[in-house]
Amino acid sequence: MNNLYLVDDDQAVLDSLSWMLKGLGYQPKVFLSADCFLKSINIQQPAIAILDVQMPGMDGSALLNRMTEADSPITVIMLSGHGNIAMAVQAIQKGALDFLEKPVDGDKLASLLEQASVQTEQNMHRKVTRQELLNKLATLTARELEVMDKVLEGKLNKVIAAELNIAQRTLELHRQKVMQKMQVSNIAELAFLMGKSIA
Rank of each mutant, 00 (worst) to 15 (best):
L24T: 01
I41D: 04
A116R: 04
I50L: 04
G106A: 10
I160F: 02
E101A: 13
G95L: 03
K136C: 00
K158V: 15
N165Y: 12
L6K: 03
E146N: 05
D107G: 13
F37P: 03
D107C: 13
V147L: 05
R143M: 15
R66M: 14
S117E: 13
L4W: 05
A12Y: 13
L38I: 07
M87L: 09
L6S: 06
K102V: 03
M87R: 05
I77E: 06
A199L: 14
L152G: 06
L24M: 05
D105K: 00
D8I: 02
L173Y: 15
N165I: 11
W19G: 15
L21E: 00
R143I: 12
L32A: 12
L164F: 04
L112F: 10
I198A: 06
A47I: 04
K29R: 14
D10S: 13
V13Y: 01
Q90E: 12
A138Y: 14
V147H: 13
A70G: 11
L14A: 10
T139Y: 10
T141A: 09
N3F: 04
G95Y: 14
Q176I: 11
E146T: 10
L156H: 12
I85E: 10
M182G: 05
V89G: 06
P56D: 14
R66F: 12
S117C: 11
P46T: 02
V128F: 07
A88N: 00
I166K: 08
A34M: 02
V7S: 03
D10Q: 15
E114S: 03
G81L: 04
L133Q: 07
V76E: 04
Q54C: 13
A12W: 11
I74S: 00
L32Q: 15
T68F: 15
V7W: 00
M179C: 04
T75H: 01
L156V: 01
L137T: 09
L17I: 03
G95C: 07
S80L: 06
G154S: 02
T141H: 03
Q122I: 14
N42Q: 08
G25F: 00
L97H: 00
D9I: 07
Q27T: 09
Q168M: 12
Q93E: 11
F31P: 09
Q11H: 08
I77R: 05
A162L: 11
Q45G: 02
L79Y: 05
E69V: 15
I43L: 03
Y26W: 15
A47T: 07
G95W: 03
S80K: 11
Q45N: 08
G95F: 00
E146W: 01
A49T: 15
A62T: 09
Q176A: 08
D71Q: 15
Q131K: 10
S117I: 14
